[in-house]
Simulated scan of single mutants.
Amino acid sequence: MLRIHFTAQDFAQIRFAPRPAPLQELHAVLTTAVTRRGGPLFAPWRGRVLRSLPAAANPLADLVPAGRPPSFLDVIGDTMADGFEQIRATSPGLVRSELERVYGTMPAPRWIRGLHAGDETAWRTMHRAQQAAYETVLAPVWSVVQDLHREEFTRYALTVAEHGVAATLTGLAPGSRLHEGVWEWPSAAPDRDVCLNGRGLVLLPTFHHPAGPLLHDTP
């Protein structure tokens, strides 16, 4: 069970991202492609995505050994450049601690060790890999993602206006419920409690991720 704890201030700060975030959608594409989520319906698409990825995108696999990406990759930027700028602004201490968490005792590739050390060449390697993956698998359908996002944005706004925030949140996640200030999501994953503590919540639909939710708990 995933439980998100709201205060009154958090309810006042719920917002729906006005535009899709290319880096987040790219992460959803790659996660779905490599984890085989979505069942047989996604099989032809998954094969096309994996076959089309250029060699320049290969370093991205090094960022998710055992499927555990570092948290500093989770940013919401309106463009790829905005997103990468936010990632690059991550404090060196957080970059090091997250890479150490992700790799543990496993040996890390050379460029990952460079990223850990703050080497600019390593950052450029990651930037090129993200851009290459985006141009190959997401750019061709980005206009569709934008149209779908506008539809979701409008639907969300109308539902809030007609039924209120509580009904809208549970409507976004069938099977979830809002009870005494806690949004509960039934899940097969281990129990997790997230206390927003006045930070509010940003809702961002993703269109290449058939499972959910994806929750990033930022400081």
Rank of each mutant, 00 (worst) to 15 (best):
L115V: 06
H116G: 08
H116R: 15
H116Q: 10
H116C: 04
A117D: 13
A117I: 02
A117W: 01
G118S: 09
D119S: 08
D119I: 05
E120R: 08
T121I: 02
T121V: 06
A122I: 12
W123P: 00
R124L: 10
T125Y: 01
T125N: 00
T125Q: 10
M126N: 02
M126Y: 02
M126Q: 06
H127Q: 15
R128Y: 00
A129P: 00
Q130R: 10
Q130P: 00
Q131I: 00
Q131H: 09
Q131G: 01
Q131T: 02
A132Q: 03
A132M: 00
A132K: 04
A132V: 00
A133T: 07
A133Y: 03
A133L: 07
A133K: 03
E135S: 05
E135V: 00
E135Y: 01
T136V: 10
T136W: 05
T136K: 10
V137R: 08
V137F: 02
V137G: 11
V137P: 06
V137N: 09
V137T: 09
L138I: 02
A139I: 02
P140A: 07
V141P: 03
W142M: 12
W142S: 05
S143G: 09
S143A: 15
S143T: 15
V144I: 13
V144Y: 09
V144K: 13
V145M: 07
V145L: 10
Q146D: 02
D147E: 14
D147C: 08
L148K: 14
L148C: 07
R150E: 13
E151V: 14
E152H: 09
F153T: 05
F153R: 15
F153Q: 12
T154S: 07
R155G: 14
R155N: 11
Y156V: 12
Y156E: 11
Y156H: 14
Y156I: 04
A157D: 14
A157R: 15
L158A: 15
L158H: 15
T159F: 09
T159H: 15
V160F: 05
V160T: 14
V160N: 11
A161K: 14
A161H: 11
A161G: 11
E162I: 12
E162G: 08
G164M: 07
G164K: 15
G164V: 04
V165E: 11
A166G: 09
A166P: 03
A166F: 04
A166Y: 01
A167C: 04
A167D: 12
A167L: 08
L169T: 13
L169P: 07
T170C: 11
T170A: 09
T170E: 13
T170V: 15
L172P: 08
L172F: 06
L172Q: 13
L172R: 14
A173L: 06
P174R: 11
P174T: 08
P174V: 01
P174K: 06
G175T: 03
G175S: 02
G175M: 02
G175P: 00
S176D: 08
S176T: 12
S176N: 03
R177P: 01
R177Y: 05
L178H: 05
G181L: 07
G181Y: 09
G181D: 05
V182E: 04
W183G: 04
E184G: 01
E184P: 01
W185S: 00
W185E: 04
W185P: 00
P186I: 05
P186A: 05
S187K: 05
S187E: 10
A189N: 11
P190G: 06
P190S: 11
P190M: 06
D191Q: 07
D191W: 01
R192D: 03
D193E: 11
